[in-house]
Amino acid sequence: MSLISILLQAAGAGQSQWSGILMMVVVVAIFYFFMIRPQQKKQKEIQKAREALQTGDKVITSGGIYGKIKEIGDIYMLIEIADGVRIRVDKTSIFASSEDAQQK
């Protein structure tokens, strides 16, 4: 038997409103521990990796553009994608360091 069915049987017929509330709490807890919490941890790791980037590091943007960081501003990075060709991208659009991506 599953845990939910045991809890529902233990609640009894007269307390059906409590069993519904209990089931909703269990569903919310499952969503939190298996979906929301791991995603939050992953976002924190990505943020730390972006903050650790320095001028001269090779990166990949979320659009798939490979380049080398030439300048880092408050909300943007200036990336050189070819000799003399530089583009300004938002910091949040940096997907990964190209050294990290090549190692995987």
Rank of each mutant, 00 (worst) to 15 (best):
R86F: 08
G12W: 10
I46H: 05
E99L: 14
A13Q: 11
A101E: 14
I46S: 04
F33V: 05
K58R: 15
K44T: 02
L8N: 11
E45W: 01
A11P: 00
T55P: 00
G14Q: 11
G14A: 11
M1I: 11
K104S: 04
M1R: 12
L3W: 11
Q47D: 07
F34S: 06
A29I: 12
I46W: 04
M1Q: 12
D100L: 09
A10G: 05
I75Y: 07
I4T: 12
A96W: 03
M77Y: 12
V89L: 08
Q103M: 10
Y32F: 11
F95R: 09
M77H: 05
G20Y: 06
Q9V: 08
A96F: 02
D57V: 04
G84Y: 05
S93N: 10
V27I: 14
V85Q: 12
L8R: 13
Q40K: 06
M1C: 11
I65G: 05
S93C: 03
Y76F: 14
M1S: 14
M35G: 00
G12N: 08
D74E: 15
V26W: 09
D74V: 05
A49T: 04
Y76G: 00
G12Q: 09
D83S: 10
M1P: 07
K91D: 04
Q47L: 07
M35D: 02
Q39Y: 02
A52S: 11
G20S: 05
F33Q: 08
S97Q: 15
L3Q: 08
K70L: 02
S97C: 12
K41E: 02
S5C: 10
F33G: 03
K104I: 06
Y32D: 03
P38I: 02
I87Y: 12
I81L: 12
G73P: 03
M77W: 10
S2A: 13
E99D: 15
V25P: 01
I21F: 10
Q39C: 00
V89I: 10
W18I: 05
Y66P: 04
V28F: 07
Q47P: 00
S93Y: 08
Q17P: 00
M23D: 00
S2T: 15
I69A: 09
D90Q: 07
E71C: 01
Q39P: 00
W18F: 13
T55V: 14
E45G: 01
V25G: 06
Q9E: 15
P38M: 01
I4N: 06
K58I: 02
G63Y: 14
L8D: 09
I94R: 05
F31N: 04
Y66C: 13
M23A: 09
A82L: 11
I60D: 04
F95Y: 15
F33A: 03
V25Y: 08
F34Q: 04
R88T: 11
I94F: 09
D83Y: 09
D100H: 14
K58C: 10
I75G: 04
G84N: 07
A82R: 11
I75S: 10
S93H: 08
R37N: 01
A49P: 03
I60F: 15
I36L: 08
L53Q: 06
